[in-house]
Amino acid sequence: MSLNFFDLLGQLPGALSQGLIWGILAIGVFITYEILNIADLTVDGSFCLGGAVCVVLILNGFSVEISLLFAFFAGLTAGLITGIFHTLCGISAILAGILTQLGLWSVNLAIMGRANQSINVNNFRLLVSLRYLQEVQNGDLPFYWSPILVISIFCVAIIALLYWFFGTQLGCSIRATGANINMARAQGINTNYNKILGLMISNAMVALSGGLLSQYQGFADINMGRGAIVIGLAAVIVGEVIFGRIFRNFALRLFGVVTGAVIYYTVIQTVLWMKLNPNYLKLLTALIVVLFLAFPHLKAKIASISVYRKGASARA
């Protein structure tokens, strides 16, 4: 069992383009987790929803752009449903997300008609595809077909748009809703409306990401969203831990989150290259997220223990 370093290098462009696609999902997770202060589990369902809608529409002769647009709207709707469950029906945010996610499982199966649908890259001009990545690398296609370039443009455009939106009066009121709900209400902000809006935008990003991934890998699968929320969280947390101290600006923080997703995927490629059984990937992801989430808590605890010890020794 020998490890060929050039194999790893060869896989990096793939990791980069996948990481960037998941970066869009991570931006969606950032909106709920960091801005709205809600752990929204709709993500697993809406990611697959985006993929399913996109692939099925392309198969039915719609253009890639229109298909992605519909994936986006499907995500908006998924967020709307979770938002209504949470605000109007008074269901806790986590449970509301789980319920939508569960329901979406059936919806996604209904959209695809079966557990997976594939699109042949030979028959369609897709926006991004693993094949294009390889062909650009081989010199068979011009550079602007490269998924890395296309998705980077997507990311930059999304970051710019969200930077603008969250700087507007409406965007500020969404941020206030997540930052301090009592204050938001006292300042006349309709917090329910803002939560719904935030959930919609978040899930639209997630579905868009799902639509791009299904094109990239050439199929949509009912299981493609499984654990997506955890991957998104991993990207958000990695991004915030690494860049949190440097990046204060909102746009840069979003950039940090996308970079977090890329780092996450590079790490995954590396452990796969080290011949880790892929079955353990989700376990590894869960452990990474636990580690990063527990870190600040444990650090404070350890610090308080050492203070206590010092006090005890001073008394003795």
């Binding site: 939106f165 009066q169 409406l170 500020c172 206030a176 930052a179 009592n182 938001a184 300042q187």
Partner: peptide, 30 residues
């Protein structure tokens, strides 16, 4: 004191939120 302001937002952002109390929040810059 924690309840009346949003800790994660800037001083001017907090004031801007209060400045629009009772008004519709549009897509104009904050």
């Amino acid at each position: 004191p924690m309840m009346g302001t949003a800790a994660k937002m800037g001083i001017e952002e907090n004031l801007a939120l209060a400045f629009r109390r009772g008004q519709r929040r549009s897509l104009a810059w904050g």
